[in-house]
Amino acid sequence: MTDEKNYMQKAWWKIASVLLLIYTFTCGLLLDVPHLPALQETIRNLYFHVCMWFCMMVLFIISVINSIRFLRSFDLKYDVYARQYAVVGIVFGILGYATGAIWMSYTWADPNNPAFQSFSAVAREPKLIGAAIALLIYFAYLILRDSITDMDKRARISAVYNIFAFAMLFPTIWIVPRLLPSLHPGGESGNPALDTRDIDGRMRLVFYPAVIGWTLLGVWISTLKIRLKILKEKKMMHETL
């Protein structure tokens, strides 16, 4: 009995994640949505596309927090955390691009031009640039981290870069949208998804649970990867000893 209770305490957020995602997939596809010109039914992609970016940013923030924790304690465990959260964040970023590309091809792309030719016009888009910078930073982080063989040094240097790059990323996300015109809704006022005027009440009912569900899923995948990595490292240590 105590085991069961303990399990519930540990796993409630995993169950919540599954339930919220089931809710997202059923209600997100079945409930009524506002019919806007150009968007029509593609507006349902909001529950998937925007959530990917939220999840990516949350995972990157967790990664930086773990880098800071590493520099405060020099416990190599946090270095593994930081790297795995960054990797899963990158995966969600790529998924965000993929869902965005599908959405774009039905709404923004010039129907007279093939998608490949309208790419350079559409890609000059502040939100795309911001996301591209974030992904480039984390790719660079992975390359830097994996290029160093010494474990302590690797952890220290990559943690320093992670913090430095992240601190530079925030002004970027704030500056770039103010320099370039955008096709995204919300324009200059900042983040369109958080602006309650922009989004219909019916959609908010699904959107906020969807964000939480996807983010929990991202964290869940990361924790699994971390456990696997730590187990592998322990095994390696035992083999060498």
Binding site: A132, L136, I157, L169, V176, L179
Partner: peptide, 29 residues
């Protein structure tokens, strides 16, 4: 960072270009 990682100048470009984009955009404007 690059010196500590015992890398050449190429890694500086990888690490630095994404970080410098906002400043370059501001300067060009």
């Amino acid at each position: 960072i690059a010196a500590k990682a015992q890398q050449n100048a190429a890694i500086m470009a990888i690490l630095g270009f994404p970080l410098i984009i906002p400043q370059l955009l501001l300067l060009m404007q």
